[in-house]
Simulated scan of single mutants.
Amino acid sequence: MTRIAFLLVPGLHLLDLAGPAQVFSTAADHRHPYRLSYIADQPDPAPGAPGQDGVVTAQGLPLRADTAWPDLTPDDIVLVPGWRWATRRPHALPVSPAAARRLARHHAAGGTVASVCAGAFALGQAGLLDGHRCTTHHELQDTLARRHRRATVVRDVLYVTDDRVVTSAGIASGIDLALHLLAVRHGPGAAARAARSMVVYARRNGDEPQASAMLRHRAHVSDAVHRAQDLIDTGYTRPLPLGDLAAAAGVSERTLTRRFTAATGLTPLRYQQELRLERAQHLIGQGATLEAAARSVGFTDARMLRRLRSRPQPPH
């Protein structure tokens, strides 16, 4: 069971929280083992104020949450939603010192930390942006770069991943981040199913080389190609004859190849191989052997995987 622990601070944006929470909740409905937890943090209380067990969002909705942190394992994710920047005092700490230490400790133990929008400043407070690539809302990028000079702020992208530090831009980009994490852990088909259940227009291009292939190649408006991609996304580990893809798309094999290449820059086969490669790379990063990873994603042995890993990757 993977726990997604949301660290909630006063003034947080509802969609920063609700978007990723809905993605992982939907994944749990689809029998992926996720449990969601919510932790209230009070980083900058008024002098003499009593302890609280909730926060008020930027949209005025009060939220109740636990104040005690759950036990976390390296498989778990701690995610910090962003907040309304203008409501904070200029030099206020993003999160409490205790919460910052928790973030740092979780990452040091091998866990993943993530943020949406201004939540990146909490990761910075914990020292987790030093030496890493990161991003945030476009209106806060200059401030993040000034405050954390040892970080590399990647501008105007949806999300960035770097050594289990995952940061995203503002508000709705938290959905893209969560779908990416889902695709990395369970394959692009799982992310596609969650997106469809949420009625999400899951075709946003992150403009980020580490973005999931499923989202990276969905920045087009060809319905026929999207239908073929849906089939590949959910069945990329098995053989997918071009004729079957063309039939699902409602076009001829020649037309599908032409449209697919024009829309994504890849042939259907190359797209399937990219999904296999991305998943295999993740499995290898988690300790799987090359041979085991190759077989897990549908190759009969590791030779093709070796060739794919050695050849230049297409531009993103």
Rank of each mutant, 00 (worst) to 15 (best):
V199D: 15
V199K: 13
V199H: 14
V199A: 15
Y201L: 11
Y201P: 04
A202E: 02
A202F: 01
R203Y: 12
R203C: 11
R203N: 14
R203V: 09
R204Y: 15
R204A: 15
N205T: 11
N205W: 10
N205P: 09
N205I: 10
N205V: 11
N205L: 13
N205G: 10
G206V: 03
E208L: 08
E208P: 11
E208G: 06
P209C: 02
P209D: 03
P209T: 01
P209H: 03
Q210E: 04
Q210N: 03
Q210H: 04
A211H: 10
A211P: 08
A211Y: 04
A211R: 07
S212R: 01
S212F: 02
S212E: 08
S212Y: 02
S212C: 12
A213E: 04
A213Y: 03
A213K: 01
M214N: 08
M214H: 12
L215G: 03
L215Y: 00
L215W: 01
L215I: 06
L215D: 01
R216V: 08
H217T: 15
H217V: 14
H217R: 15
H217I: 11
R218S: 12
R218H: 09
A219I: 06
A219P: 06
A219W: 09
A219E: 08
A219R: 10
H220P: 04
H220M: 05
H220L: 06
H220F: 05
H220I: 05
H220D: 04
H220S: 06
V221K: 11
V221I: 13
V221D: 15
S222Y: 04
S222G: 08
A224T: 00
A224R: 01
A224V: 00
A224Q: 01
V225R: 00
V225G: 01
V225I: 02
H226Y: 05
H226E: 07
R227I: 03
R227T: 03
A228Q: 05
A228W: 06
Q229A: 07
D230Y: 04
D230P: 01
L231A: 14
L231E: 13
L231W: 10
L231N: 08
L231P: 07
L231I: 10
L231Y: 09
